[in-house]
């Protein structure tokens, strides 16, 4: 079986800037970010929607970039961890919520999304909203603390 590569041009906003990229229309956004643009803050933990490491904001909503085709992104706005308010990453770092760190960018984006929807989430709400992000290192205790520290912070 040999299939030849199809490529098309796509325009979208990435972290506030217009980008134009040639990519196979069947590529996932994750593949485009990592393999073509080499913007590697967004991680690939499973490519199946199970781990959340690849979380990005699509028009401000958290989605899996591994389950989003570049064709679904045309004309939209994508925000990756690199452009998320640094105070979220900082809270994770300060509270010791980062060990190997491979899951962390996904958590940071998911947290930024949570805080955009809810200023003062309860413990149960934080768990509900982060349930799709897996971390194998921390046991989540410090992740919860990091997010709690950001709650109610309108700064």
């Amino acid at each position: 079986m040999q299939y030849s590569r199809v490529e098309k041009e796509f325009f979208f906003r990435l972290n506030g800037e217009e980008v134009r990229v040639r990519a196979p229309p069947g590529y996932t956004l994750l593949e485009v970010l990592r393999h073509i643009l080499h913007l590697t803050g967004t991680k690939d933990g499973c490519s199946s929607g199970d781990c959340g490491a690849c979380t990005v904001l699509l028009d401000g909503r958290a989605v899996h970039s591994c389950l989003t085709l570049i064709s679904q992104v045309e004309g939209r706005e994508v925000t990756t961890v690199e452009a998320v308010d640094e105070k979220v990453a900082d809270a994770y770092a300060r509270h010791g919520a980062v060990q190997c760190g491979y899951c962390t960018p996904g958590f940071v984006v998911a947290t930024a999304y949570l805080l955009s929807k809810m200023h003062n989430p309860s413990d149960a709400e934080i768990r509900e909203w982060l349930r799709g992000n897996l971390c194998r290192c921390t046991g989540y205790v410090k992740i919860l603390k990091a997010v709690e520290s950001l709650a109610g912070d309108d700064g």
Binding site: Y3, S4, R5, V6, K8, P24, P25, G26, Y27, E31, S47, S48, L69, S71, E74
Partner: peptide, 12 residues
Amino acid sequence: MKSLSYIDVFTP
């Protein structure tokens, strides 16, 4: 996991 580099996508 395989890449779908060979398919086309139509967007109406």
